[in-house]
Nucleic acid binder design. Structure first.
Lengths: 112, 112
DNA sequence: CCGTATCCAAGTGGATACTG
DNA sequence: CAGTATCCACTTGGATACGG
């Protein structure tokens, strides 16, 4: 099957956790500060409530983020990085730098 | 649509490039040494020719890897990292480390 | 040896409408 | 405010068979 290397190979494991289309973006935003549901929605363009909910649930199930519910009216739910999520920041930094290099590459290609 | 941030945001751009299920693994193997088609196939468990071909083509189209054809009988095709691909290694390293931390986390959970 | 051509099954993102 | 419930369209990985 495909689970053979999950939990064994770091690359397979990481890739499985990062499959979500918005995972990286959410990790990035939460690395800056804890955010409420609505804040995330405003921070992420073109993303419906349903989709955001799914992504957040996946990430929470995987132990990447923590969901804290404040019992009040109106409801308040805050998302933050777990310990594992915080340790993800070196990856985030590396991806940001490489992503920008790739963008430069795209531009230079377009300008040819 | 969804292309709005491609080529603008480094995270969106990177995620698009790394979507392939085997992308990280292939990048890793090619970071160690150039490899022929068959070598890659042997290095990657449970992956059919057709799938490998698709992944390699995608990565080649994206400029991550380079496909070199040696005109001989029997045919020989070698894959290597492009310049952009080589600059990806910091990401690879960070992911490897974090992936291993996550694996430890999984084990500690299982042992509870 | 290194592919291509089809076709199919499954997974995921998203639209829309409704709720405590 | 922060979701849930359906349902659908599209993308992808993979199986199988054939070709230069």
């Amino acid at each position: 099957m495909e689970k053979d290397l999950y939990g064994i190979c770091p690359y397979v494991t990481a890739q499985k956790l990062l499959t979500g289309k918005w995972t990286l973006l959410i990790m990035y935003h939460l690395s800056l500060k804890n955010m409420r549901f609505n804040e995330l929605q405003r921070a992420l363009p073109s993303l419906t409530q349903a989709t955001l909910t799914k992504q957040l649930r996946m990430m929470s199930d995987n132990g990447l983020i923590i969901r804290t519910v404040y019992d009040q009216i109106p409801p308040k739910v805050e998302y933050s990085l777990s310990e594992l999520g915080k340790r993800f920041s070196p990856v985030l930094d590396a991806i940001q730098e490489w992503g920008n290099e790739y963008i430069d590459f795209l531009k230079s290609k377009a300008g040819t």
